[in-house]
Amino acid sequence: MVSGLINENPTVYERKERRVRTDSTNTDEFSVEPIDQLEIFDHIRDIRDPEHPYSLEQLKVLTEDSVEVDDGKSYVRVTFTPTVEHCSMATIIGLSVRVKLMRSLPPRYKIDIRVAPGSHATEAALNKQLNDKERVAAALENPNLVEMVDECLSPSFDDA
């Protein structure tokens, strides 16, 4: 591991206000509320950056638009943008997003994680690594990695 931080001084953006859902469907007992972009974004926006005390949303690694979802086809794709091109933390971030979604979405979903085109030096390799079932499973067998991922997913103090 490198001793210094990969990105010493990241730009921190303001968090978007949580949209309160005001749809009238709540009153109807039998209407279906499909899993949508915002819901998935809500799951992953508070994941913490592995090396800074900020959430992925605050660092603009993730935005609402980076989530593409099709509830009917049970498919979701999250595109994240590492803060710097050579970020070695990108795998951990990607893994955290995947784990969080695996925990939050029904098993019927196929989850696709990728870095935004052109945002990372080893983009292709990274994408391959993040979507390779075997390698993900192997990574999650590694206690060190699991600990890091859990650290990123643990709830932070200011969003109770």
Partner: peptide
């Protein structure tokens, strides 16, 4: 886990919390 696919969002949210706790 089945409740993760509930038609209602509030149920899904509770299910995620509960599932995490039981896991």
């Amino acid at each position: 886990t089945k409740a993760l696919d509930d038609p209602k969002r509030r149920v899904r949210e509770e299910a995620i919390k509960c599932r995490q706790a039981w896991t």
